[in-house]
Design a protein around this nucleic acid. Structure first.
Ligand code: MN
Ligand code: MN
Ligand code: ZN
Ligand code: ZN
Lengths: 157, 157
DNA sequence: TTTTACTTTTAGAATGATTCTAATATTTTA
DNA sequence: TAAAATATTAGAATCATTCTAAAAGTAAAA
């Protein structure tokens, strides 16, 4: 269970506290963000959030795990999945499942948006929902509430 | 390997030959269709094709297996998967993967079309590609080759 | 017809992403 | 400090699908 806490909550983050200073948010910024979302900022959660929010681009659990192992030396795969579930539950990230991939991808963008799959690099690019218009003619008894759309193609040059 | 054959190829289909006379194609029609696609019409393949082409509606492998067990008494799950692969390879059916389902669904419609998921019944409805228009504004280096789209909603009444 | 080659079916093992379990470690609260 | 709550962990379990290797069926060759 993730619970809000009042007091400071100091952990032994010293050994890795500046590993990420060059990109994304600092440890302190990430920690604040976690607390804002009602998540207790353990070392593992801070590091994973730092990766997810600042450095990664639509990573899979496997990529997150691999990065975290390099960064923390030792972390359980179960912790990665537990933490991802917690982050999703608390609205810090969202997950996407795509027909072309048998792994879930995690996304720090929380707005409604879509994706373009570069079939050369297999990399995902965000597509703002404003850049898309969909017109659909169906019998009126079909009440569309949402849709998922994934574009596939290549990127020139 | 699926190979075309010239000669007649009679099998012991007598015990089940009229189980499907009331809906979809007859055994003979299905058999012709298989042969047309270069598929040797074994009993298992005929029955599975009869289900897929005439009776089923976007079934999963599990549903196909369950139906086939009732129909044939005994069939291996491996045969179901092997046969589905063969049918896909030969252009008799296509498969779809959806983000909301952890199982593949098989579709006898071979034209380009989309799907509407009724969130009440979880049933899929076909959406003709002509009933949809998508306008996308992306930087010109993104060359879109195709897109997958799935609509979710409910059906009134 | 017998032999041989090929194809199909099969049971069960393997795979791989994710979830679960149940024990241990850490942190908070009393 | 003691007790309660929460977080992390290793490894087992799950489940759709694929793989393996043997048995069964069918066709073509001899
Ligand atoms: Mn990946
Ligand atoms: Mn189903
Ligand atoms: Zn995204
Ligand atoms: Zn369809």
């Amino acid at each position: 269970m993730v619970k809000k806490t009042k007091s400071g909550f100091k952990k032994n983050t010293d050994s890795v506290s500046n590993a990420f200073s060059r990109s994304g948010m600092s440890m302190q910024e990430v920690e604040s963000k976690l607390v804002d979302h009602g998540i207790q900022p353990s070392l593992q959660r801070i590091k994973l959030a730092q990766y997810l929010l600042g450095k990664a681009d639509h990573p899979t659990a496997e990529q997150i795990y691999t990065w975290a192992q390099k960064e923390l030396g030792k972390i359980s795969l179960a912790t990665v999945y537990n933490t991802l579930s917690t982050f999703i539950e608390c609205g810090l990230i969202q997950e996407f499942k795509f027909p072309h991939l048998d792994q879930v991808i995690y996304d720090c963008r929380m707005d409604h948006h879509f994706h373009f799959v570069d079939t050369k690099s297999q990399r995902l690019h965000d597509v703002d929902s404003g850049s898309l218009r969909v017109q659909l003619k169906l019998p009126k008894k079909f009440l569309v509430e949402k849709f998922d759309i994934v574009f596939k193609g290549v990127i020139e040059d």
